[in-house]
Design a protein around this nucleic acid. Structure first.
Length: 422
RNA sequence: GUGUCCAUAGUUCAGUUUGGUUAGAACGCCAGGUUGUGGCCCUGGAGGUCGUGGGUUCAAGUCCCACUGGACACCCCA
C-alpha cells in the first residue's frame, strides 16, 4: 500500500465514531449544565506561545512538539495542549473585561510526538474546561466536580480522584530546597532516571515508579506539609468544598503535574481499568499563566481529559451508546420502471424525515433484499412496473416478515402508521 | 529517545520449530439453488507482490540482516 496514516495517528470509522458522537454529546451537555461555553482555537500557534507557557524544560516543549517553519518563516507548532491557547484567546479577546469569571470548555485534537502505546497517540483528543478570573477554592471545586460529573454522567466506574497542592511562588522554592537536601543524602541509591530528575525537577522523584526510589522517598518531605499559610488555607478550603459536594477524594502528596504553570491545586483522575497510562484527566490551578502571557494578573483553574482513554474505559466497562438512530426504509426495485420510481421516492421520503436506502449498483431484487437485511432496514418497499400501473407497492416488515400491498399515494402516511415516522 | 514481542486473503488466524509441488481454514464478500423477496441451509466463485529491501541456499512464507509499521513497557503524560 502506498499511503498509510502516519505513526501514532488513526482513522475513526463510522462504527467507532458513533461512540465518539455519543460521548461528545454527553460531555457537551454536562458542560452546558455547568454553564461553560465552548471555545475553539486554531490547530496551530506561534511556537513561542507554547514554550513560554508550558515551560522550556518540560518534556512537551523539550522533545514532543510538532513544530515547523511556514513559508513566511514563522515558527509554528501544532497545539500539544489546550490551556495555553485558551489563555492566549482570553487575553487577545479581552474576555476578562466582559465579566469577572469566564468559564470555557473545549473538545479538540492535540499533537505530541511521543512513542505510541496503550492510551497514547501522536494525535489524540482532549476535552477540558478552564475557569478564569477567580482564586477562590470554590472554583477549583467546581472544576473538579465538573470533571467527575462527566464520568458519572457516562456511568463510568472504578475511578479515583487524587488531590494535592503544589504551593505557590513563595512556598515552593523553599520546599524544593528542603526536598533536594533530603534527596542528596540518598543520591547514590536513586535510580538513574531519578538522579537525572534531581537536577531537572526533584518533585518528580516522588512520583517515580521505581521500587527502590519509592522506598528511599517514603519519609521524604511533601509539599502539602510545607505550604505557606495562604496555600494551606486554600487547600483546606478546597477539601471542605469537595466534601460539601459529596465528591470522594484522596490526598496524594506525590502528585506532580507535568507543566510548569501549576500553582496550589493539582489533581488527577485515575482509572483502574486502563493500562500503564492510567490518568483519565489531570488539572489544577495556574494563577501565574495569564500574566506570563502578557495579560493582567489573573488567577485561573482548569482540567484536561483524554477522549481516547475515556473511550477505552467505556469499552472495558461495556458501556455502549443507546440504540441506533432512525429506522431505515429500503426501497427495492424489481425492474427499470421500479428503479426510476425508487430514486424519485427515496428523495421524497428523506425530505419527510425517513432514513432511506436504495440499490445504486443495479443489483437483482434478491441482492437488494440481502442488502436491506445487512443494513438492518425495518421495512422494504418493493415495486415493479405492474404494481406502479395499479398505484401499488409491496411493503414488507423485515422483523416479522409480514408483507402487504399499499396505495402509493398514502406511502408516507402508511410508514408513519407503522411507527417509523419522524 | 530506549527495551521486549509481533507483521500470511477484507477480518481473525493455521502453516515458520525441522527450508522442498499450484500457501490453507473460518467468518465476511459475490453469484446460483428461488426467471419479484432477506436471515437458516446447500453449491460455486472472486480475493494473497506471505510488511519492504537485501542476503544465505539447487530451493525461502519458513533461516540471517536492515528498514518500515504495529502492540506493550520505560521516560513522560491525556
Amino acid at each position: 500500500m502506498k499511503f498509510k496514516s502516519i505513526k501514532g495517528t488513526r482513522d475513526i470509522l463510522p462504527e467507532e465514531s458513533r461512540r465518539w458522537q455519543f460521548v461528545e454529546q454527553s460531555i457537551r451537555s454536562v458542560m452546558h449544565l455547568f454553564n461553560y461555553g465552548e471555545i475553539r482555537t486554531p490547530a496551530f500557534e506561534e511556537t513561542a506561545m507554547f514554550s513560554r507557557s508550558i515551560g522550556e524544560l518540560t518534556d512537551i516543549v523539550a522533545k514532543e512538539m510538532y513544530s515547523f517553519t511556514d513559508r513566511g518563516g514563522t515558527n509554528l507548532t501544532l497545539k500539544p495542549e489546550m490551556t495555553a491557547s485558551v489563555m492566549r484567546a482570553y487575553i487577545q479577546n479581552n474576555l476578562g473585561e466582559q465579566q469577572p469569571l469566564v468559564k470555557l470548555y473545549y473538545i479538540a485534537p492535540m499533537f505530541r510526538q511521543e512513542r505510541p502505546q496503550a492510551g497514547r497517540l501522536r494525535q489524540f483528543h482532549q476535552f477540558g474546561a478552564e475557569a478564569v478570573g477567580g482564586q477562590h477554592a470554590a472554583i477549583d471545586a467546581e472544576i473538579i466536580a465538573l470533571a467527575c460529573e462527566v464520568y458519572s454522567n457516562l456511568k463510568i466506574r472504578n475511578f479515583v480522584l487524587k488531590l494535592n497542592s503544589v504551593g505557590c511562588e513563595r512556598c515552593r522554592p523553599q520546599y524544593k530546597q528542603l526536598l533536594t537536601r533530603y534527596l542528596e543524602k540518598v543520591r547514590d541509591r536513586l535510580s538513574e532516571d531519578s538522579r537525572r530528575r534531581l537536577e531537572e525537577n526533584p518533585l518528580r522523584i516522588l512520583d517515580s515508579k521505581d521500587e527502590a526510589d519509592r522506598m528511599l522517598t517514603r519519609d521524604a518531605p511533601l509539599m502539602k506539609d510545607h505550604l505557606c499559610a495562604e496555600c494551606a488555607a486554600h487547600f483546606a478550603e478546597l477539601q471542605e468544598h469537595l466534601k460539601l459536594l459529596g465528591i470522594p477524594f484522596g490526598v496524594d502528596g506525590r502528585i506532580v503535574r507535568g507543566l510548569d504553570y501549576y500553582t496550589k491545586t493539582a489533581f488527577e483522575i485515575i482509572s483502574m481499568d486502563l493500562g500503564s497510562q492510567d490518568a483519565l484527566a489531570g488539572g489544577g490551578r495556574y494563577d501565574l499563566l495569564v500574566k506570563e502571557l502578557g495579560g493582567k494578573d489573573t488567577p485561573a483553574v482548569g482540567f484536561a481529559a483524554g477522549m481516547e482513554r475515556l473511550l477505552m474505559v467505556m469499552e472495558k466497562q461495556k458501556i455502549v451508546p443507546p440504540g441506533g438512530g432512525h429506522p431505515l426504509v429500503f426501497l427495492a426495485a424489481a425492474d427499470e420502471e421500479g428503479r426510476k420510481w425508487v430514486i424519485r421516492t427515496a428523495m421524497g421520503l428523506c425530505r419527510r424525515g425517513f432514513a432511506c436506502e436504495l440499490d445504486l449498483l443495479g443489483r437483482s431484487l434478491k441482492a437488494q433484499m440481502r442488502e436491506a437485511d445487512r443494513q438492518q432496514a425495518s421495512f422494504v418497499i418493493a415495486v415493479g412496473a405492474d404494481e406502479l400501473k395499479r398505484n401499488q407497492a409491496s411493503i414488507k416488515n423485515m422483523r416479522s416478515g409480514e408483507q402487504r400491498s399499499v396505495d402509493l399515494r398514502n406511502l408516507a402516511a402508511e410508514l408513519a402508521k407503522l411507527g417509523d415516522g419522524p
